[in-house]
Design a binder for these strands. Structure first.
Length: 501
DNA sequence: AACTACTTCAACCGCACGTAC
DNA sequence: CGTACGTGCGGTTGAAGTAGT
């Protein structure tokens, strides 16, 4: 966009450069202005709203002669002109509330704004995108342990949100089930979409370019930030206080990462964010610590000599636990359960143990994504009476989560995927009959297997495996290899082996 | 002082939903 | 039932401001 004018009425632009299709479609011979609003325009808009009330924004231009489209008027009014708007910095209480709400709702800024009188969704969004992210980049925990998670109740709304919540992309994923033969590749696409910083996995597979992919511009994103921009390196010392100074000097090539031991990578790669709990302001090593730039809770048990690995991209969907859920986690080693909560979801949602010595629940939580997906599918296949989950809760969790992809035939995997998709479709259909308006339902529902959540990814050992700090480096590699086929699979396996050496 | 890089935030953009016709 | 319109939401952009060199 171009802010070429700040004076009303001047610099009328072509209607076809104005703000958005809606505005463009309403072009009737008057150029609609865009860019910053002048005080004169503000006065006109305020006057209009006083006379006619809010709404019917597209009539503003007709009634006032204001060269702004309705969309722009609504935004200006909502964000700057409407009464009772709070201006200025957020208070500590507001900041805390934003963090809490974000932990529950994710990037649902408008809903968050409803909890912050006088604040707009845009304000909250900007706040989050700047101050919070800056905090994360500095390696500070996003959700301080002293956060009063009990402030917000385990309300029906949040319960429903937690259970049914989701976003459009989740639904897109479910819809993929209609094309079963492509379910895996579509799932890869889906996963690529949901794992910021990765490129299209299915494209990678189909193009059989994994070996060279990292050096291909098309797949640079697959190794995000491996070729850091100068901007990213600027100030990297302060951003990543634990990083060696070599971070500025060793800009590795993609090939470097294919052949470099993870320990080396950890020293040279800018997206690896040291998380030295000894230096965290919330120094409780057993307190939840966000992996910087993600919403992922770690258990805070980050060896000081072994930097934790931060997420790759800043903007990630939130994990959407209720506050009460989170609170229960703090009190109990096992995840809170409900009759409605899916057993596997409960597993997925469960944060790492607050202290490994304290936890006998799912100690094998570093199993990979595909393992989890497989497990989910298997649970679906056998879940008419939740027997597996019950056994999961009563027996060694490792018996359940330790399923290695390499132990499962590909056709079995395919069947499991189909089963999973069908199960989800069934659930979706069920929700259609519950009387919830489609839009609300769309906003509220969440697939039970939320493999899209970065915390799930990051909690899995996938990244760990890829970077060689995992314990069970076999299963994910096996799985990828199986589905990539011989050529790419071998390439992938070589990469994997190389990374784990 | 000049330049560069980074941050902030107002505004835009595209999409989706609800409603009226 | 299909289409157009009005609205709201979340993501993105880029000018202006700020900080560092």
């Amino acid at each position: 966009m171009s802010y070429t004018s700040t004076e009303m009425g001047s610099d009328n632009e072509s209607p076809f450069t104005d703000n958005g299709s809606d505005c463009r479609s309403r072009w009737e011979g008057n150029a609609l202005k865009k860019g910053p609003w002048s005080s004169a325009e503000d006065d006109i808009l305020v006057d209009y709203v006083k006379k006619h009330g809010e709404g019917n924004w597209n009539a503003v231009q007709k009634h006032t002669g204001l060269f702004r489209c309705g969309k722009s008027c609504r935004l200006r009014w909502a964000n700057h002109l409407r009464p009772n708007l709070k201006k200025g910095a957020f208070s500590q209480e507001e900041e805390q509330l934003i963090v809490e709400l974000h932990a529950k709702m994710g990037n649902r800024w408008a809903r968050m704004a409803a909890h912050l009188p006088g604040r707009t969704d845009n304000e909250i969004k900007n706040y989050w995108n700047t101050r919070i992210k800056r905090r994360l980049r500095a390696g500070l925990p996003l959700y301080p342990p002293e956060m009063h998670v009990e402030v917000l109740e385990w309300s029906p709304e949040y319960t429903e949100s937690r259970i049914l919540g989701g976003d459009r992309r989740h639904q897109d994923f479910l819809q993929l089930g209609s094309c079963e033969s492509n379910v895996f590749f579509d799932s890869l696409n889906f996963v690529s979409d949901m794992l910021p910083g990765t490129s299209n996995l299915a494209d990678m597979v189909s193009c059989k370019t994994l070996g060279n992919g990292a050096s291909s511009p098309r797949y640079e994103d697959f190794m995000p930030l491996l070729i850091p921009s100068s901007k990213r390196f600027r100030g990297s010392e302060s951003l990543y206080p634990g990083c060696s100074s070599t971070i500025k000097e060793e800009i590795p090539s993609p090939e470097h990462f294919q052949n470099t031991a993870p320990q080396k990578i950890s020293k040279t790669c800018s997206f690896l964010v040291p998380c030295d709990v000894d230096h965290l302001p919330y120094g409780n090593q057993h307190s939840p610590v966000m992996i910087p730039d993600s919403h992922t809770l770690t258990d805070g048990l980050v060896p000081t000599s072994n930097p934790s690995l931060g997420a790759v991209k800043l903007e990630l969907p939130s994990f959407q636990y209720s506050e009460a859920t989170f609170d229960q986690w703090k009190k109990s080693a096992s995840p809170p359960q409900s009759d409605i909560l899916d057993p596997f979801d409960a597993y997925i949602q469960s944060p790492p143990p607050l202290g490994r010595e304290d936890s006998d629940c799912f100690p094998n939580c570093d199993t990979g994504l595909l393992d989890m997906l497989l497990l989910e599918a298997k649970i679906r296949n056998n879940s008419t009476n939740n027997s597996l989950y019950k056994s999961c809760a009563s027996t060694s969790p490792s018996n359940v989560v330790g399923v290695s992809v390499s132990q499962i035939k590909s056709e079995e995997f395919d069947d499991s995927l189909k089963s999973l998709v069908h199960s989800e479709i069934s659930i979706s259909t069920q929700h259609n009959a519950d009387g919830i308006p489609p839009r609300q339902r769309e906003k509220e529902r969440q697939p039970v297997l939320d493999i899209t959540r970065p915390d799930v990814w990051l909690a899995s050992s996938w990244l760990d495996h890829g970077l060689g700090i995992g314990k069970e480096a076999g299963s994910m590699s096996d799985a990828i290899a199986v589905f990539l086929g011989d050529d790419i699979g071998n390439d992938y396996m070589q990469m994997s082996v190389g990374a784990s050496l």
